[in-house]
Design a protein around this nucleic acid. Sequence first.
DNA 1: GGAACGGCTAAGG
DNA 2: GCCTTAGCCGTTC
Length: 103
Amino acid sequence: MVSRFAARVYVLTSEVPRGKVTTYGAIAARMGKPGASRAVGAALRANPTPIVVPCHRVVKQDGELGGYGGPTGTGRKAALLRKEGVAVRGGRVDLSEYLFTWR
DNA sequence: GGAACGGCTAAGG
DNA sequence: GCCTTAGCCGTTC
């Protein structure tokens, strides 16, 4: 059973198209709680469907990949994003090009 | 039911 | 420019 908040996070995350990324803050703001960036992270951390929910498309506000399960997860995330067409360099993403928002 | 933790963010030092 | 402090919110123990 997933919380309503988490469910919304998953939906928004899955809304992000391939080759684009979003930020925790953006998701939080989108759900009406701009300060719930950590909560978003918590929800994604509890992500019950990692395949359906592309949690790897969520990065920090700074463009940094942030975390992903463990220290090695970040590397995996970068590789994954690259596969999707996102240029990850130095463990970071160019938000000015790949940042996706819901308006 | 309550305390601690975390995949954050922004502001100070 | 890097590290510390404070705030915010949901999940987990």
